Measured scan of single mutants.
Amino acid sequence: RNRTTFSTFQLEELEKVFQKTHYPDVYAREQLALRTDLTEARVQVWFQNRRAKWRK
């Protein structure tokens, strides 16, 4: 699988949710996936990576 390149819009949407919660539930991830045209799995992995970055 190739690396996912996120658009500016997608990143803004993802970051917006991350500001509210670092652990969105499955429903929130599904909604975000639909809004950003990503799969729920991509959204989940983005949050994992974003939390790792945030901890540093």
Rank of each mutant, 00 (worst) to 15 (best):
1 R>S: 12
1 R>K: 14
1 R>E: 11
2 N>H: 10
2 N>K: 11
2 N>S: 08
2 N>D: 15
2 N>Q: 12
2 N>W: 03
2 N>M: 13
3 R>K: 12
3 R>N: 15
3 R>H: 15
3 R>D: 12
3 R>Y: 14
4 T>D: 12
4 T>S: 14
4 T>Y: 13
4 T>R: 11
4 T>I: 11
4 T>M: 09
5 T>K: 15
5 T>N: 12
5 T>L: 11
5 T>I: 10
5 T>R: 08
5 T>S: 14
6 F>R: 05
6 F>D: 07
6 F>M: 11
6 F>E: 14
7 S>G: 06
7 S>H: 06
7 S>E: 11
7 S>Q: 07
7 S>I: 02
8 T>K: 14
8 T>W: 03
9 F>T: 12
9 F>Q: 13
10 Q>I: 05
10 Q>L: 03
10 Q>T: 02
11 L>S: 09
11 L>K: 06
11 L>C: 07
11 L>F: 02
11 L>M: 06
12 E>S: 12
12 E>N: 06
13 E>K: 04
13 E>M: 03
13 E>H: 05
13 E>F: 00
13 E>R: 02
14 L>M: 08
14 L>R: 01
14 L>W: 02
14 L>D: 02
14 L>S: 01
14 L>A: 01
14 L>K: 00
14 L>G: 03
14 L>I: 01
14 L>E: 03
15 E>D: 06
15 E>R: 02
15 E>V: 03
15 E>A: 02
15 E>G: 03
16 K>Q: 07
16 K>L: 07
16 K>I: 03
17 V>R: 02
17 V>Y: 05
17 V>K: 02
17 V>P: 00
17 V>E: 07
18 F>M: 05
18 F>L: 00
18 F>P: 00
18 F>C: 00
18 F>K: 00
18 F>V: 02
18 F>S: 03
18 F>D: 04
18 F>I: 00
18 F>Y: 04
18 F>T: 02
19 Q>A: 15
19 Q>F: 09
19 Q>I: 15
19 Q>C: 11
20 K>M: 08
20 K>Q: 08
20 K>E: 12
20 K>N: 04
20 K>P: 00
21 T>A: 05
21 T>D: 08
21 T>Y: 04
21 T>K: 03
21 T>C: 11
21 T>R: 02
21 T>N: 12
21 T>S: 09
22 H>L: 04
22 H>P: 13
22 H>C: 06
22 H>D: 04
22 H>Q: 14
22 H>T: 04
23 Y>G: 01
23 Y>M: 04
23 Y>N: 09
24 P>A: 02
24 P>Y: 02
24 P>C: 01
25 D>H: 15
25 D>P: 08
25 D>Q: 03
25 D>T: 08
26 V>K: 10
26 V>G: 13
26 V>W: 14
26 V>N: 10
26 V>T: 14
27 Y>K: 14
27 Y>H: 10
27 Y>S: 13
27 Y>A: 15
27 Y>V: 14
27 Y>D: 14
27 Y>W: 11
27 Y>N: 09
27 Y>M: 14
28 A>S: 08
28 A>N: 13
28 A>E: 12
28 A>W: 04
28 A>R: 04
29 R>H: 02
29 R>F: 06
29 R>M: 15
29 R>C: 10
29 R>Q: 06
29 R>L: 13
30 E>D: 05
30 E>S: 10
30 E>W: 06
30 E>H: 15
31 Q>G: 04
31 Q>R: 08
33 A>D: 00
33 A>Y: 02
34 L>K: 15
34 L>T: 10
34 L>V: 13
35 R>E: 08
35 R>C: 04
35 R>V: 14
35 R>D: 11
35 R>Q: 09
35 R>Y: 06
35 R>M: 10
36 T>R: 01
36 T>P: 00
36 T>C: 13
36 T>V: 12
37 D>A: 15
38 L>W: 02
39 T>F: 00
39 T>M: 03
39 T>E: 10
39 T>V: 05
39 T>A: 07
40 E>I: 06
40 E>Y: 04
40 E>K: 09
40 E>F: 09
40 E>D: 10
40 E>S: 08
41 A>I: 12
41 A>M: 09
41 A>F: 12
41 A>H: 05
41 A>S: 09
41 A>L: 08
41 A>T: 11
41 A>G: 10
42 R>H: 12
42 R>V: 14
42 R>Y: 09
42 R>L: 14
42 R>P: 02
43 V>Q: 01
43 V>L: 06
43 V>E: 00
43 V>P: 02
43 V>D: 02
44 Q>I: 06
44 Q>K: 09
44 Q>R: 11
44 Q>C: 13
45 V>P: 00
45 V>D: 13
45 V>W: 09
45 V>E: 13
46 W>Y: 04
46 W>I: 00
46 W>D: 02
46 W>H: 00
46 W>V: 00
46 W>E: 00
46 W>S: 00
47 F>S: 00
47 F>P: 02
47 F>I: 01
48 Q>H: 11
48 Q>N: 10
48 Q>C: 09
48 Q>T: 07
48 Q>M: 08
49 N>R: 09
49 N>T: 07
49 N>G: 13
49 N>E: 09
49 N>F: 14
50 R>P: 01
50 R>G: 01
50 R>W: 00
50 R>A: 11
50 R>D: 06
51 R>D: 05
51 R>P: 00
51 R>F: 00
51 R>K: 02
51 R>V: 04
51 R>N: 03
51 R>G: 01
52 A>G: 08
52 A>L: 14
52 A>C: 06
53 K>Y: 11
54 W>C: 08
54 W>D: 15
54 W>Y: 12
54 W>P: 07
54 W>L: 15
55 R>D: 13
55 R>C: 08
55 R>A: 14
56 K>Y: 07
